[in-house]
Design a protein around this nucleic acid. Structure first.
Lengths: 159, 159
DNA sequence: TATTGTTATACTCTATAACTATA
DNA sequence: TATAGTTATAGAGTATAACAATA
């Protein structure tokens, strides 16, 4: 009984890993960057995407949280981005220790171009799919990431 | 028309990225490793998993291909794994330049324990899903990774 | 005293170049 | 001469520790 399901899941795990590698390691990001004519390292792009996806100015610590990296890493890459005028820092009116970071129009353009490029590729890859299958896949993938993230954070305490 | 679909896809992209980060960056691997009482860095584990998933001895270059890294990276980590008796190298009977690498029972045990742990977690995260939804999700995810990988390699030439 | 962020430092991961041995 | 692998070296990515400023 459980055997059959375990077997199924067992065949899916490599694909989840593969997908993860495809997204991070496969040079996909570099290709997209090249396509839009931008020249940015991955951490720099990641900062831009964090700001872009959130759609508002973020504190340095918030960016680090979203990227799942330590604070100093963000600080260093922000220097580069600021020098290139892709982000700009503002004082946080609510907290004098903190600093708000927001995209400049140039930074927003890169982030948006990157996302649009990737979306285009996904769209092409799914060109042969029926609308129903696409819908179903989107729904289940959303549900899966939610459930899995929830499970992970719920089980963080146990250890 | 296309607008609606673009909107859907647009909401899914962050999840695919999130899933990628969950798999690579989130400390998931470290947690699994700790759970099974193993102490291995990520590249070392990755080598073990490559061998485990393939189920046979691989040449150094084949391991590098699967990991999507350069050869010397594999060589260096193989030294560590060999010293710890988690893999062992054999001469390739077909090619005197090459070297075959295979898991020892100890290495196989770690790889298997790791995979089993992750599968358990995925299973728990999907505990509330109906068997049909699980099946559908597995099927569509397989199809998606296949189609996407195919698209990527097909469009590699263009550039 | 706790928290936000920065500076300084060090370590891990990975790539490139130079080389050796076999094909 | 081309290919498989190794050794040597360098660079990117990231963490930790020590510090400054504000809460």
């Amino acid at each position: 009984m459980g055997d059959t399901e375990g077997g199924d899941l067992r065949s899916v795990l490599p694909r989840i890993m593969q997908l993860g590698n495809l997204m991070n390691r496969s040079g996909l990001g570099e290709r997209a960057m090249k396509r839009i004519g931008a020249d940015l390292d991955r951490p720099g792009l990641s900062i831009l995407l964090s700001l872009h996806m959130t759609g508002k100015a973020l504190r340095v610590g918030e960016i680090a949280d979203r990227m799942q990296v330590a604070g100093p890493h963000v600080t260093r890459h922000l220097h580069v981005l600021e020098r290139r005028r892709l982000v700009r820092g503002l004082p946080d009116p609510d907290d004098g220790r903190a600093r708000l970071v927001e995209l400049t129009p140039e930074g927003a353009e890169i982030a948006d171009g990157y996302v649009t490029t990737l979306l285009g590729w996904f769209g092409e890859a799914l060109a042969g799919w029926s609308p129903q299958d696409r819908r179903t896949f989107y729904d289940l993938l959303l549900r899966f990431t939610d459930d899995f993230a929830a499970f992970l954070s719920a089980s963080t305490d146990e250890d």
